[in-house]
Design a protein around this nucleic acid. Structure first.
Lengths: 242, 242
DNA sequence: TCAAAAGTGTTCTCAGTACACCCATGG
DNA sequence: CCATGGGTGTACTGAGAACACTTTTGA
């Protein structure tokens, strides 16, 4: 009949797909989407790369656990964090007990991404050229990428890759990197300005070899109105510097 | 550091928000969105209405568990089932141990909804006029309703409320009920026909007090392409008749 | 022949796109 | 003064909204 107080027979974990823009040496200045992965140090899939994550602690909210575990493993503090999907198919962890993973996706600013701890067991990979990952993590990353691209087109998340002030060219570069195609500068400018998501400041970026572009800032007063009626929890975890 | 093999300190359950269109006596033929709820028979929130659901069984996929528990409690078989969100805030189950709920939302055809078991502990409610529910279920229903409305505008889920053959007026009535506003019949027809989501049959619905409308059917050959790269699992649970 | 819904045609608006062109700065 | 990206103007296109109009049935 209805729910008994049996224990659900599953381990509950939280993982996060972290996206940042990085400029590869090869791609010569054109930023691309990268993500940090951690190497597994035990079976199953020992030695394989996997999404950062960990178990949910007592009294810890899901979003908080996502932010905490990603910080523990990569040292990063995300500027955007959103739940992606709960993966719980019975066969996703062959041999071992079934794990239900509540997966989040996160964005980090480029400056923040520089500071990330890298080492033997943490490394960055281009999002559309990954090795074979542990568990079903390849599928998960694909889905997260799809969500990132889809949401980029109707939402305001691009700002989460940038700092406080930015030029429209920088904002456009974010869109281009995520969508993987060039955008018309003139039309992009008009679309963004019409949306009211950014506000022009009276500052300009100097030192360029051409006309100095105006700096803009994020317009906080605009309601996102695209995440549905779920209560906002924009920054569930304000970084704990080591 | 990374995930230990500790047990996550949470009970894992699956619940479902079930939507169907019903024609109230009061609203005189205009269908509205309704949903079935079950009455809780133990603490916490004993006596309150709640979403149907239950614990996840060993070796059972999440979507399957959603379809099974909703069938167990309401007797319904959904024509559409999709994951909504994982709710796991530490304080959502006051007093009791924290429960992480993976919530699904489902659509059932009107004929199927008629057959639903109703009784002392199962009843239907209009979706936008609910009593105070157990746990955070009011918020969950609000979110599911938002998803239903959002998805209705760019996807093909409306068919899940109807049978094999239907008129465009019936399809339009589904949209109108979900969106809560009237739509222009002429423009609706053109939009739907242009989308290629339905195919005209050479049958007509007779017995109307006016010109008999043509019957259409769902176009299976069109890819939805709106759910992202997640593997399809359209009908995880093919009803188990009691 | 009339009411009512099925179905068609026409126009308007607006967002997105393509692309020509001027502006301002460092070298 | 010139190369380069910043920034503006303008025209084209397609989707959606508004609404007038014709068609086909039962009563």
């Amino acid at each position: 009949m209805t729910a008994r107080h049996e224990r659900a027979s599953a381990i509950l974990a939280v993982s996060t797909v972290i996206f940042a823009l990085r400029t590869d040496e090869e791609t010569a200045g054109v930023p691309q989407v990268w993500l940090p992965l951690v190497r597994r140090i035990r079976e199953p899939f020992e030695g394989r790369w996997a999404l950062p994550g960990g178990p949910l602690r007592v009294g810890e909210d899901l979003a908080y656990a996502a932010a905490r575990t990603l910080n523990d493993t990569t040292g990063l503090t995300p500027s955007y964090l959103e739940q992606l999907y709960a993966f719980g198919d019975a066969d996703r962890s062959p041999g071992a007990e079934r794990v239900v993973s509540v997966v989040y996706w996160a964005l980090v600013r480029s400056e923040e991404a520089e500071r990330a701890s890298v080492g033997e067991n943490v490394a960055w990979f281009p999002a559309d050229d990954l090795p074979e990952l542990a568990f079903d993590h390849n599928v998960i990353v694909q889905y997260a990428l799809w969500r990132l691209r889809t949401k980029m087109e109707y939402s305001r998340i691009a700002h989460a890759f940038l700092g406080e002030r930015f030029t429209l060219a920088q904002l456009r570069a974010v869109h281009e990197a995520v969508l993987g195609k060039a955008l018309d500068p003139a039309n992009f400018r008009r679309t963004i300005e019409a949306s009211g998501t950014v506000v022009a400041t009276d500052e300009y970026l100097t030192g360029t070899p051409h006309r100095p572009p105006r700096l803009y800032r994020y317009n906080d007063s605009i309601d996102l109105a695209d995440a549905g009626p779920l209560p906002r929890q924009q920054h569930p975890f304000e970084g704990r510097s080591a």
